[in-house]
Design a protein around this nucleic acid. Structure first.
Lengths: 204, 204
DNA sequence: CGTCACATTGATGCCTCTCAAAGCTTGTGG
DNA sequence: CCACAAGCTTTGAGAGGCATCAATGTGACG
């Protein structure tokens, strides 16, 4: 985590030629509030931000848990006000792409807008497949499908970080992940060599 | 289902001035295949389509289950070929927005492209909150949060179709949904009147 | 009045979460 | 070079909850 943080903390790539304004947000502080005039879209560089909406009965409902590296509030670009709260769960570093500048840049440069749309479409695609994975109840099956999607042509998958993080990404407890891996290995669907996972054909 | 089908079957709204080519796809037939040159994006009018990818070991992994009313393969607009298979699960009616025409229309008319992006951003937003809902294990809590998001200011929610469909949307068995509703009603979090659901403040 | 689809409730089993504890690896400092 | 700490990995035991199978009730429609 420290490495990623360090790497990202200084980096805020320009979007359609617009550079981000960096800011640090304390744990518990809000980045923006529901009803605020939208000031742009955000990139989470480090930390953790939760998007939530307060319902008529006063309860907060989480709409999205933003992970480092993701952008959020893209829709605010097309609307006048934010439709939810963004609250920093831990101290966070975010980059803000000012709305006016970004909107101008995008509307004035179809090529940039085209790429921006492409990014949105890809995000949608990725999220849809992640969503579908979550439909799978069985932990071993879910892990297996995940690996099938992520592995290279040889069926190899090198976990980018700790397996615990993988468990979080898959939406299961780390114990469940370890057990799932053990099960798959017992089945013969999978083998492991110094941290890397190796799918074997024939594992159902 | 028949009503929705009937309503949608004839309707294929123009997208950026481009009209859709309608086609009927038999159950089990493919709309497009991984590797095919992309011919446009699709709108599912009726029926059910599954997007799937065949993995190196020959297994099919479902990327997305398309529901009537949704568009799919948006990303193909930005890439040369389809990256997955689209297979009709049941006999389906789809509208295709031809790629060349759509790309031309969008690139030539920034305003259309802007609206197209807005649609993508909204889809992303909606999907994210749906994804977050699925993180909630407890059936009653999941239903409750869903209703909090979907109800009007009075806390009322009129199910658009049968409760069974709602269960499918929430990713749970219909029995679980009925039991969840019964539990919430027993708690006093909820009351029901001829099909409509009514949230009551104070239900945790 | 029979059929069909939805709604509801019961019983059972499996699976994941949670709490717990122990092995393992890595890095740090003495 | 060793000792210790911290975090990851692994396995165990128990409990709760949802899926599944099953049966019955209910309403619309012909």
């Amino acid at each position: 985590m420290k490495q990623i943080d360090a790497k990202l903390a200084g980096t805020a790539p320009a979007l359609a030629g617009v550079t981000a304004e960096l800011q640090t947000v304390a744990a518990g502080a809000t980045v923006f509030r529901q009803g605020d005039r939208s000031r742009g879209i955000f990139l989470l560089l480090a930390g953790s931000v939760r998007l939530q909406r307060v319902t008529p009965d006063g309860t907060a409902v989480t709409l999205h848990q933003v992970r480092a590296g993701e952008t959020f509030a893209e829709a605010s670009l097309f609307s006048d006000r934010y439709h939810c709260d963004a609250v920093a769960v831990t101290q966070s570093r975010v980059g803000r792409y000012p709305k006016a500048a970004l909107a101008t840049a995008l509307r004035g440069d179809p090529e940039s807008l085209w790429r921006f749309s492409a990014d949105l479409a890809h995000s949608l695609q990725r999220l849809r497949s992640r969503y579908e994975l979550k439909q799978i109840r069985s932990a071993p099956q879910r892990v297996l499908q995940f690996l099938r999607l992520r592995c290279d042509a040889d069926g190899r998958y090198a976990a980018p970080g700790a397996l615990m993080d993988l468990a979080a990404e898959l939406g299961m407890s780390h114990e469940a992940l370890y057990r799932a891996l053990a099960t798959l290995e017992r089945d013969g669907s999978l083998s492991r060599a110094n941290g890397a996972l190796h799918l074997r054909a024939g594992g159902r």
